[in-house]
């Protein structure tokens, strides 16, 4: 299996090595806003932007960065792009910026970005690194959007702010509060892992002619 082909990278980041349910990275910063689909989308798009550009920059500069200060310079690069996102949000989407609060800044400490920069961008070319950043972000995004979908639908009866459920529906307040995010994420991991384990055990059955 060629580990570095774009298709393989995509498959790994979206499913087999998914940052959230396999690597369990980077859940802090975004779980907090998953009670609302709009905020989740904006946060994850911001993360994809930062991940892609960070990987690009680190990959382009990898031969210039002295080893001693590698971690701190990577942090600097990540912080640079996060601040850009923050500045842009504040100027052009002030409502969203206010409702996201400090969580935009917390993208800096999101282990996924730092992890990918270390593990991938340091040893691969720029275009592939950008692709890795984008696909990692996408792998992150789809899981969180499913959680946000459930939380907003059951907690508010709306999707993206548009009322979807009939007015007779009593919202499940627990979905708006913290515990639901933990439960949903745990359940998601359960389902995903069970599927992967089943695939593994059926892969190990002797297949005729293979």
């Amino acid at each position: 299996m060629n580990d570095d082909s774009p298709v393989q990278i995509l498959k790994n980041n979206i499913w087999y090595s998914n940052p959230i349910f396999i690597q369990i990275l980077g859940i802090c910063s975004t779980l907090a806003v998953t009670n609302n689909l709009t905020n989740t989308v904006i946060m994850t798009v911001g993360l994809i932007f930062v991940a892609a550009f960070t990987n690009l920059t680190v990959s382009l500069l990898k031969n210039l960065i002295p080893r001693k200060v590698r971690m701190i310079l990577q942090t600097l690069i990540i912080a640079f792009y996060v601040i850009i996102v923050d500045i842009l949000l504040r100027a052009y989407l002030p409502e969203v910026s206010k409702s996201l609060g400090p969580y935009v800044g917390l993208i800096i400490t999101n282990c996924i970005i730092m992890g990918r920069a270390e593990a991938f961008a340091q040893s691969h070319g720029p275009l592939l690194s950008v692709w890795d950043g984008v696909t990692s972000g996408l792998g992150y995004m789809w899981v969180l959007m499913i959680i946000a979908f459930v939380r907003e639908l059951m907690g508010f009866g709306t999707l993206f702010g548009i009322t979807v459920l009939p007015s007779g529906f009593t919202p499940w307040t627990i979905m708006v509060m913290a515990p639901s995010a933990f439960f949903l994420l745990g359940t998601f991991i359960w389902v995903a892992k069970t599927i992967i384990l089943k695939q593994k055990s059926s892969d190990m059955q002797p297949k005729g002619g293979k």
Partner: peptide, 26 residues
Amino acid sequence: KDGLIYTVIVSILAAFLFVFLLSLAY
């Protein structure tokens, strides 16, 4: 590349560039 002088120069350049670009955006 691993020498102290190089490290210091790169760090200072990086920090300077960083702050400069951001203050432009700001």
